[in-house]
């Protein structure tokens, strides 16, 4: 359901609304027919507007592993690998000073939750 269907939905809802108003102001027996028709067209319009595929679930953000050199200020950030844990001594040496490195942190950065100003 793309933009076109949404536009058709809006148009149908508008036409339905006009028909309903017209039916409400009409004094003849046909007023019921116009009102009913108006409601029907409006319902079709709103159905088109709200229709569509359910929202696709967002994939969780990646888990990040932060590795720091034990001596210098070298820091490496990469995706989490199975077996990583905080304060684990990694096998690779620091590319800057060739000393050992430790996993400083493993974390995830989540989306900010909706805030309520109360």
């Amino acid at each position: 359901m793309g933009l076109i269907s949404k536009l058709i939905g809006i148009s149908l809802a508008a036409v339905g609304f006009v028909l309903l108003l017209f039916g409400m102001n009409e004094t003849s027996v046909m007023s019921y027919v116009y009102s009913f028709l108006g409601l029907l067209v409006m319902a079709m319009g709103f159905a088109l507007l709200t229709a569509g595929r359910p929202k696709e679930e967002k994939l969780p953000p990646p888990t990040i592993t932060e590795i720091k050199c034990n001596d210098c200020d070298f820091k490496e950030i990469r995706d989490f690998k199975k077996g990583d844990y905080i304060l684990k001594t990694v096998e690779e040496a620091c590319p800057k000073c060739q000393t050992g490195m430790t996993i400083e942190s493993v974390y995830m950065i989540r989306e900010e939750a909706k805030k309520y100003n109360v």
Binding site: P60, T63, S105, V106, Y107, M108, I109, R110
Partner: peptide, 12 residues
Amino acid sequence: AAAVGVMDKKIL
């Protein structure tokens, strides 16, 4: 969700 989910950066 944060307590049982992967450690959030904000908590860290």
